[in-house]
Every structure is written in structure tokens, then in C-alpha cells.
């Protein structure tokens, strides 16, 4: 009897140990860090990190599938983010817990037929110096200024192409609370003013910083 209890106790301990190992492996698998450059999938989301000059790393939390923590130092340019494929009409939820040193944090994506590259800027601002102002749209409690910019013989998801960039610029979001981007409001607005969308390709919440900046952004999307 005693030996049986001892045996069961050992089995229980071994099972617990095995579970702990599996759990640790799972956490390790999802809580990965990417240094400077990398693309792939993490917990069901697309991710991408690109760095030119300086250094950066992007760590994925095991607690929230859509989380990324991006640190960068003295970068000529860094672009990092997480998102979906395909993008489309959806309410993108996000929470940026901390943000410093960035130029913009935006919803970024593409459509094809017609080929369109689009940005919806939540933090910071987009460069619109050579773009055409097309009015504004109200969505999720604030106003975005809309711009259109033509790209001629430039790189795209289908190779060299002539296409439009659509830019909705706000940038007034805040850290530490949940926010939403109803992408349909932007897409419908663009369509209504003749800026037509096509078939959705991928869409991410991306952080961009350039001109030697250093900083840190911790963001979660859902």
C-alpha cells in the first residue's frame, strides 16, 4: 500500500514536471525576440521588423497574442509591426502601453485591383509634403485628414508599379488605454471621394521611426 502510494506520488511528480517542461517550452516558443530584421508568424499574427542603421529588437509576449515590444536605438529607419492577412473591414483594437521615439504608429496595408498602399495614422504623423489634401473624415471620435499620393514605377507587392497611396492622418491617440480603428469608416470615406479600394492583402499596426531616433513601443493588437 505504502509502495503503491509512493509509486502514485512519483507518477504525479513526473507528470507535474512534464507539464512544467511543456509549459516552459510553449512560453519559450511564443515569447521570442527578433533582433534588427525578421519576418514571420507569432501566435497567429504576421510580424515584421526591419532596421537600417542603429539597432533594434522586437519581443513577443506569451500573454497576449497580438503584443510586440519594439526597442530601437540610433536608427536610420526602423519599421516593425503585427497584423492580419488579409486585412479588411474590421474594428482593429489596440493598446499602446508605452511609446517613445517613434515617428508614427499606423494601420498599414495594401489592396490589389486597384493597387493601393494605405496608412491610418494613430500616433505621430505621416509625411504628406508631396501628397494631395482630400478633405477629412470623422471616425472613432476624432478627425483624420485625408491625403492621396501617386507613386510612379515604385516597388509594390506585385512588383514595380504605378499606384496610389491613401493617407488618413490623425496621430492624437494616447498610451495606456484601449482604442479602436473602424477601418470600414476609412475605406468607405476613400471610396466615396473616388479613392477606390481593391481586394485586401495584409494589414498591420506598424511602428516607424527614422532620422537617428531611439525609443521603445509596446503595443498589442486584437
Amino acid at each position: 500500500m505504502h509502495s503503491m502510494r509512493f509509486f502514485m506520488s512519483q507518477v504525479y511528480r513526473i507528470a507535474l514536471f512534464a507539464l512544467a517542461i511543456v509549459g516552459l517550452a510553449t512560453i519559450t516558443a511564443s515569447a521570442q525576440t527578433v533582433y534588427n530584421n525578421g519576418t514571420g508568424y507569432n501566435q497567429g499574427f504576421f510580424y515584421s521588423l526591419y532596421t537600417s542603421g542603429g539597432s533594434s529588437n522586437m519581443t513577443f509576449s506569451s500573454q497576449y497574442a497580438g503584443n510586440y515590444a519594439l526597442s530601437f536605438s540610433n536608427v536610420n529607419d526602423v519599421v516593425g509591426g503585427k497584423g492580419w492577412n488579409p486585412g479588411g473591414y474590421r474594428t482593429v483594437g489596440y493598446n499602446v502601453g508605452a511609446a517613445s521615439g517613434y515617428n508614427n504608429i499606423s494601420i498599414y496595408g495594401w489592396t490589389t485591383s486597384p493597387l493601393v498602399e494605405y496608412y491610418i495614422c494613430e500616433f505621430g504623423s505621416l509625411y504628406t509634403g508631396n501628397a494631395q489634401y482630400k478633405g477629412s473624415v470623422s471616425s472613432d471620435g476624432h478627425n483624420y485628414n485625408t491625403y492621396e499620393h501617386q507613386q510612379v514605377n515604385q516597388p509594390s507587392i506585385q512588383g514595380t508599379a504605378t499606384f496610389e497611396q491613401y493617407l488618413d492622418n490623425w496621430g492624437g491617440s494616447s498610451t495606456g488605454s484601449n482604442h479602436a480603428v473602424n477601418t470600414g469608416n476609412h475605406f468607405n470615406h476613400w471610396n466615396n471621394i473616388g479613392m477606390h479600394m481593391g481586394n485586401f492583402n495584409y494589414m498591420i499596426l506598424g511602428t516607424e521611426a527614422y532620422s537617428g531616433r531611439s525609443g521603445y513601443v509596446n503595443a498589442t493588437v486584437w
Binding site: 519576418t39 515584421s48 519599421v79
Partner: peptide, 14 residues
């Protein structure tokens, strides 16, 4: 090999 979304800076860097 690249497995994430198409981003021109990433394609260039690769």
C-alpha cells in the same frame, strides 16, 4: 527565406 508580410524595406534588406 521571408515568411512575413511584404514590406519593401525588408525585401531590400534581404
Amino acid at each position: 527565406p521571408l515568411s512575413g508580410p511584404w514590406l519593401w524595406p525588408v525585401v531590400q534588406q534581404n
